[in-house]
Design a binder for these strands. Structure first.
Length: 284
DNA sequence: CCCCAGTCCTGCGGGC
DNA sequence: TGCCCGCAGGACTGGG
């Protein structure tokens, strides 16, 4: 579930480890199927042990821990992965522990209940190939309306589905796609090639507004309670959701219609049929 | 190239 | 009370 706001919140909360050295790397035995870790543990250990952490970055929904040997540890949380400096929710789903020198037994952990996440230690060449601009589009916080319209405008796909494509724009997942289109008053089923340039402008403004507000609220912690920042603190943006997971409840914008749920690309889409009309910002 | 369906995974909640 | 089933959706793969 971590999307751009959650990964950005993780990034900010692990930032204090910049400058520290890695003194131990452990791969806890886990009774569940192991997550994807590359390269193999011995090589991972050899290439990271003793290195200094020089920066914490984010590419879309991935968190990068950059080392002083021109490599980066790339954490991909997917649905339930967490990067933690504090205690994990439990010990059963710990996947990686990185012990840092000085300041007690402080450790950086990767915890993942469902195990869909991954960890990669990549050289800059590998990073360029695997997470370069050919594979990952411009960050959602930076993309312009012109750029978004250029990338998505010709597509016949539904705009909601297109916003989830990380090669077009990076960082938006199901939850924020719903909230963004509601804020922009664009119908999620509108075809991209029917969205007017004024529609793209509204979408880009809503991308920035919603994602910035969500970062300010430190992300969304849903009912399952999984998402936490690196200090084990919950997000608060779930209290500001206007459509996501609110099927049948009154739309918080118009106060008249109730929120609908449809399925697009095997994912739930929530929207207000009154606020998000087909003809608004898009040709019918 | 474009687009879609299927796949992976665990925990939870609804139905009976 | 306990069991079964469906659902949650990241990114990737394969096929039309």
């Amino acid at each position: 579930m971590p999307e751009l706001p959650e990964v950005e919140t993780m990034r900010q909360s692990v930032a204090p480890i910049v400058g520290r050295h890695i003194v131990k790397v452990r791969f806890p035995r886990c009774r569940y199927r192991p997550i994807k870790i590359t390269p193999s543990p011995p090589i991972f250990r050899r290439k990271s042990l003793g290195r200094r952490i020089v920066a914490i970055d984010r590419i879309g929904k991935r968190l990068l821990v950059r080392l002083d040997n021109d490599h980066a540890i790339v954490f991909e949380p997917r649905m339930t992965g967490l990067v933690l400096l504090a205690d994990a929710p439990d010990a059963d789903h710990l996947r990686l522990g990185i012990e840092l020198e000085g300041g007690g037994a402080e450790q950086l952990w990767f915890w993942d209940r469902r195990g869909l996440g991954s960890i990669r230690l990549l050289s800059s060449d590998q990073l360029q190939k695997q997470l370069g601009p050919r594979r990952v589009g411009p960050d959602a916080l930076d993309v312009s309306a012109k750029e978004l319209a250029r990338r998505l405008g010709p597509s016949r796909r539904a705009v909601k589905v297109a916003l989830l494509d990380q090669r077009s724009v990076a960082g938006i997942g199901n939850l924020y796609a719903c909230e963004i289109l509601h804020d922009a008053a664009i119908h999620p089923l509108a075809r991209c090639d029917h969205v007017a340039s004024s529609g793209w402008l509204r979408i880009v403004r809503s991308i920035r507004r919603i994602l910035r507000q969500a970062i300010q609220s430190e992300g969304s912690t849903l009912n399952d309670g999984t998402y936490r920042n690196a200090l084990n603190q919950m997000g608060r943006y779930q209290n500001h959701h206007r459509v996501y997971d609110r099927e049948g409840q009154r739309c918080l914008s118009c106060g008249k219609s109730s929120v609908s749920r449809i399925v697009q690309a095997q994912r739930s889409t929530f929207f207000c049929p009154r606020c998000q009309k087909m003809g608004n910002g898009a040709l019918v």
